[in-house]
């Protein structure tokens, strides 16, 4: 009981029954969300799941059709101005001014935050250094790499030292190295006590960064919990066997009954523990009886999460 009350008063975001549709298409179908202060909360979902829509609603960019929400203690509808004062948003698509240099972009945001000139300059310099944007400082974004542009975008968001930050797919399109840099930046922010709502299509990313993960599918939260809780629900690593025809698949399924059949993909998925024993075992049991077209070892990803919680694959929900 005590814990429940505490969580409510400490909530950075508390949303109930958010709904949104475009025309006849229901995009959010009753979303409940509670994010504790200082937490990293990941919204995990495929294209079109409604991640951006949630971010846009909670950051006051679009109104929800139904439902209520408080953000850092302010009512989203009645106190939108106050909400804007305490949040920072880095949207899915670049919001950098392409005709201004990196430094001018930061100073522009500083002006819009009504920071005094000296503080504006100091903060801009600090962020340029922290995000290793020295080169970007004097050039317009036309010459930046994707990672640089993303970092500048985030730096602009941090000019106002927000206590709650929305990051919509902060690493999509970045190479592994830039992704690592972005993860490091996010961890540092967490260390400073900032609350973060991030969206991602990668289980690995949510797993690395988040205290809690909500899986979003077709505008509904289909699973929520800590990464550990969630991963316990996923079949986890497995060996994937692909066959040329359904007869071979049927035969293999008979030989390995603990495997999960996917008749569409002509695949058999066999749970895989650590080490090579299970693999050796599977190969031995299949033997020469069935022609295996392809064998791969699979670590859990978003698809597995979806398979586990919705019973269907996640691909192409947007279509």
């Amino acid at each position: 009981m005590n814990a429940v009350i505490k969580q409510q008063t400490d909530a950075a975001v508390s949303a109930t029954a958010l709904r949104k549709s475009y025309g006849k298409k229901v995009v959010l179908d009753g979303v409940d969300l509670t994010i504790g202060k200082g937490q990293v909360f990941a919204l995990l979902g495929p294209n079109g799941a409604g991640k951006t829509t949630i971010v846009r609603i909670l950051s006051t960019l679009i109104p929800a059709e139904a439902g209520t929400a408080t953000v850092m203690g302010y009512d989203l509808r009645a106190e939108a101005g106050a909400v804007r004062g305490v949040i920072g948003v880095t949207g899915q698509f670049s919001s950098v001014d392409d005709l201004l240099t990196g430094e001018e972009n930061l100073l522009l945001v500083g002006r819009l935050l009504h920071l005094p000139a000296s503080e504006r300059q100091a903060r801009a310099s600090e962020l340029l250094e922290r995000f290793e944007l020295f080169e970007a400082a004097r050039h317009t974004p036309a010459t930046y790499s994707g990672g640089m542009k993303r970092r500048l975008d985030l730096a602009m968001t941090l000019m106002g030292q927000p206590r709650l930050i929305f990051l919509d797919e902060p690493t999509t399109g970045l190479d592994p190295r830039s992704r690592q840099t972005m993860w490091q930046i996010i961890r540092e922010l967490v260390h400073e006590g900032v609350t973060i709502l991030l969206t991602t299509q990668y289980l690995e990313e949510a797993d690395h960064l988040a205290d809690r993960i909500a899986v979003l599918d077709h505008g509904r939260i289909v699973a929520e919990g800590t990464p550990e809780e969630l991963k316990r629900r996923i079949p986890g690593a497995h060996i994937r066997l692909r066959f040329a025809d359904s007869a071979s698949l049927a035969e293999a399924a008979r030989l390995i009954p603990e495997g999960t059949r996917d008749d569409e993909q002509l695949e058999l998925r066999v749970p895989n523990e650590r080490g090579i024993r299970p693999l050796r075992d599977v190969v031995a049991r299949i033997g020469d009886h069935v022609a295996v077209e392809d064998l791969s070892i699979h670590t859990p990803d978003l698809d597995d999460v979806f398979f586990a919680v919705t019973g269907s694959a996640s691909k192409d929900k947007s279509q």
């Binding site: 960019l61 804007r84 949207g91 670049s94 919001s95 945001v109």
Partner: peptide, 13 residues
């Protein structure tokens, strides 16, 4: 059509 206006709208501008 670009993202800049979203940044402004989410700020107390």
């Amino acid at each position: 059509t670009g993202g800049f206006v979203d940044r402004i709208r989410a700020m107390a501008v």
